[in-house]
Amino acid sequence: MGISVTISAATEDDAEKILKLQYLCYQREAEIYGDYTIEPLTQTLDDLRAELSQGPVLVARLGEEVVGSVRGTVDQDGTASLAKLIVHPRMQRHGLGGRLLSAIEARLAEESAAKRYRLFTGHRSEGNLRLYRRNGYAPVGTEQVSRKLSLIMLEKEAAPQAFVTSA
């Protein structure tokens, strides 16, 4: 019998594992854009630890190994910003990215009543764009970061919260 992947809140003890996985996962993005100075590859462990306190950070575990992660925050207007959705290369194309995306959306809706979800990805990151579109995200804008990189902003509205009334 195999081990199944579980998704849970990250702990302080996960910070170094997340950072190592982030470094591994963003190599492909850096290669696509010819830029190995992108923020996910230059982020420090201290910066990541600070992010752990700013909003929910989820991890996907295969046994004790962290094989995926995603982060989120919500602003005053109810816009949830999702960031650094990563899945170990050997675990990609098995639905884990979609599971992490759904889990962070649910967590942000539950904890902060998010009204919409927003994320960014590079204009040449076709796999990411497919994943986000498949999960209901639509492009709403583009930001030119450098001569080589434009970020596409994608959004989707949060599902209306179901309210239960007692009789």
Rank of each mutant, 00 (worst) to 15 (best):
49 R>E: 01
50 A>L: 10
50 A>E: 11
51 E>L: 02
52 L>S: 14
53 S>I: 00
55 G>I: 05
57 V>T: 15
57 V>I: 08
57 V>Q: 15
60 A>T: 14
60 A>R: 11
61 R>K: 13
61 R>L: 12
62 L>F: 05
63 G>N: 14
63 G>R: 13
64 E>K: 10
65 E>K: 12
66 V>S: 12
67 V>W: 11
68 G>M: 13
69 S>P: 13
70 V>I: 11
70 V>F: 09
70 V>G: 06
70 V>H: 08
74 V>R: 12
76 Q>R: 06
77 D>P: 03
79 T>P: 01
80 A>C: 08
81 S>L: 06
81 S>Y: 03
82 L>D: 03
82 L>G: 06
84 K>V: 00
84 K>I: 03
84 K>W: 14
84 K>A: 03
85 L>H: 12
89 P>E: 11
89 P>W: 12
90 R>H: 02
91 M>C: 07
91 M>Y: 05
93 R>W: 06
94 H>Q: 13
95 G>Q: 01
95 G>K: 10
97 G>Y: 00
97 G>F: 00
98 G>P: 05
100 L>S: 05
102 S>R: 08
103 A>F: 13
104 I>R: 01
104 I>K: 06
106 A>H: 00
107 R>P: 00
107 R>W: 07
107 R>L: 00
108 L>M: 10
108 L>E: 09
109 A>E: 05
109 A>Q: 10
110 E>P: 02
112 S>K: 15
113 A>L: 08
114 A>W: 09
115 K>D: 10
116 R>V: 04
116 R>Q: 11
118 R>C: 02
118 R>T: 02
118 R>D: 06
119 L>H: 02
119 L>N: 09
121 T>A: 03
121 T>C: 04
122 G>Y: 05
123 H>G: 01
124 R>F: 09
126 E>K: 15
127 G>T: 10
127 G>W: 06
127 G>D: 05
129 L>S: 05
130 R>K: 11
131 L>W: 02
131 L>M: 05
132 Y>T: 03
132 Y>G: 00
133 R>Q: 12
134 R>G: 06
134 R>K: 11
135 N>F: 08
138 A>K: 07
139 P>F: 12
140 V>L: 10
140 V>H: 13
141 G>S: 07
141 G>Q: 02
141 G>V: 09
142 T>V: 15
143 E>H: 00
143 E>N: 00
145 V>C: 00
145 V>W: 07
145 V>P: 01
146 S>M: 01
148 K>N: 07
148 K>L: 05
148 K>D: 12
148 K>C: 05
149 L>Q: 01
149 L>N: 00
149 L>H: 00
150 S>L: 02
152 I>P: 03
152 I>M: 04
152 I>V: 14
153 M>R: 14
156 K>D: 07
157 E>P: 12
157 E>R: 14
159 A>L: 07
159 A>Y: 09
160 P>T: 12
161 Q>W: 08
163 F>I: 04
163 F>L: 06
164 V>A: 15
164 V>K: 15
165 T>V: 11
166 S>V: 03
